[in-house]
Design a protein around this nucleic acid. Structure first.
Lengths: 291, 291
DNA sequence: AGTTCTGATAGATTTTGTTTATGGTAATTT
DNA sequence: AAATTACCATAAACAAAATCTATCAGAACT
């Protein structure tokens, strides 16, 4: 029993005529005859009495007709449900980001998004960038707004949003605080408090020193940049932070002959379709980048 | 969008695999792939993300899946509604009969029918036999239990149930009351009260006299045999009635060299399907005939 | 690396659906 | 009454579609 047959049946019943139904369906009359007889065969029941020039529903036909409306409606609803997604943005949206980005870059985007799409329940996971990449890979989240990995990662699509220059910072009471410029070697003589290697930010910094063959004195590690900042500001060591985090209680040092930077951006799985919500969120981020 | 595709979609979603769905549907894997891609094209939406070895429903896919169950259920109900008719007897049943048959032949059948099929609403039309035939022709009634027309009538199927001999009857005070046998000519010398020509019974009687070239003195006419009987019994004229109606207040006369009879039976349209109720009623009548 | 899953794709084949042409029946017109 | 018209059913030719076989490419597991 196929929908085409049911539609033909409904049309014939409505017009009381095979030929008129055929016209209406843009088919020839024999095609309609066939569809009806297919139905009759499938249901093992006569649906119409053919009375010469006229036709009439049988009891079975009447029983079917009253149900066909239900079928057509449920099909229409199913189609509708899919098509509505093209316009509507609703349902849950899982994204990952870092505390730092969430605190410093997302607030305006988040509030704009919630305002324009109140139907979406945002579920934000604060994780390390590396964890975010893994969650994207297994489909646990749809989007990540994190430090971008240096280089491409298979199956994951990266979109740079913000360039985030990093800067060496020390407390005003730190021995190096008075210098305007420092070398890597000078830094290496003092203990450091840096982001862990689980974060791309941490890797960027470590790699930078590695490349220049400079061994670091590693102190405590944490992935939460705000905490890192606090530790540096109370003099527990020098650190490297986004230059935007500079403030009264920290001195920024220009690094001799080198600069470190990270790129913050949007990451999502190449093969997975983004939900409407995710697309809307991504679009909002792209617009917000410039502003 | 066809049901076959929707079923394939549901199977793929359920098994999380095209190949397993194919096995389940007794199809090859490419066939299932095609059905899904047909659906995706028709709905203009991707339904699954193909992630290498694994697949996952997209947002559109999830939206569709939740509706597919409704569709399948409504289709099942439609099929069920038709199939149930094969067993069940319910709904309205319109039949036609005469007052006389209703009064003298049907009571036992009607009560048996109502007892075994209480779900059927019987709608009985008391009409002349000729009207009954016309109503059958236009499909206003399904069955008629009436005096059968002499000879076949196109498109209508007749089934004799009872042989009903007719007899000339007069009141005990009628001039002919003392005779045992009378001739047509003798009868023609006295006024008659006979059924009208709209009834086959009336026609049978009139034709009988016509064939023998005997002119009748016609008095009042009525189609209701009980009334006719009353009129004859009070001496308004001779009449012809089913011999079963003979009683204390009437004398039956044997007609010289002729007998009149009518056949009562079941009539229905040849081309129209009988409802389950009508079939059941007809069957009951056939069984009751003998008893 | 090699093997074994996965689904997609291409081409041959089969099945199904559609059309054209025709026939039969009932209602309508001449 | 005969002819015409308006139906639907059927058959054969044709077109379209679905399916199968075979093969490919990618990912996951040995």
């Amino acid at each position: 029993m196929e929908l085409a047959s049911l539609r033909a049946f409904a049309a014939v019943a409505r017009f009381g005529s095979f030929s008129q139904a055929a016209d209406h369906l843009h088919l020839t009359q024999p095609a309609v005859s066939k569809r009806i007889s297919n139905l009759e065969e499938a249901l093992d029941a006569k649906l119409f009495d053919r009375l010469g020039r006229q036709i009439e529903l049988t009891e079975a036909g009447r029983a079917l007709l009253s149900r066909v409306q239900d079928v057509e409606q449920s099909v229409k609803q199913a189609e509708q449900a899919v098509r509505e997604l093209s316009g509507e943005v609703r349902g849950p949206l899982r994204i990952a980001t870092s505390h730092h980005i969430g605190l410093h870059r997302l607030p305006s985007v988040l509030s704009a998004f919630q305002q324009s799409h109140p139907q979406v329940r945002l579920d934000i996971d604060f994780v390390d960038s590396e964890q975010a990449y893994e969650q994207l890979r297994i489909g646990q989240i749809e989007l990540a707004v994190v430090t971008l990995a240096p280089g491409d990662i298979s199956k994951l699509h990266s979109e740079p949003l913000w360039d985030d220059p990093l800067m060496v910072m020390v407390s005003p009471v730190h021995p190096l605080a008075e210098k305007k410029r420092v070398s890597l070697t000078e830094l290496s003589e003092h203990p450091a408090v840096l982001p862990g290697l689980e974060t791309f930010t941490g890797r960027i910094v470590h790699r930078h020193f590695d490349e220049h063959g400079v061994k670091l004195q590693l102190g405590m590690e944490t992935n939460y940049l705000e905490t890192l900042r606090m530790m540096a500001s109370v003099g527990l060591g020098w650190t490297v932070l986004p230059s935007t985090m500079l403030g009264e209680d920290l001195r920024g040092l220009t690094l001799h002959k080198a600069d470190m930077r990270r790129t913050l951006g949007l990451v999502y799985h190449e093969d997975r379709s983004l939900s409407r919500s995710a697309s809307a969120f991504a679009e909002l981020l792209r617009q917000n980048e410039s502003g």
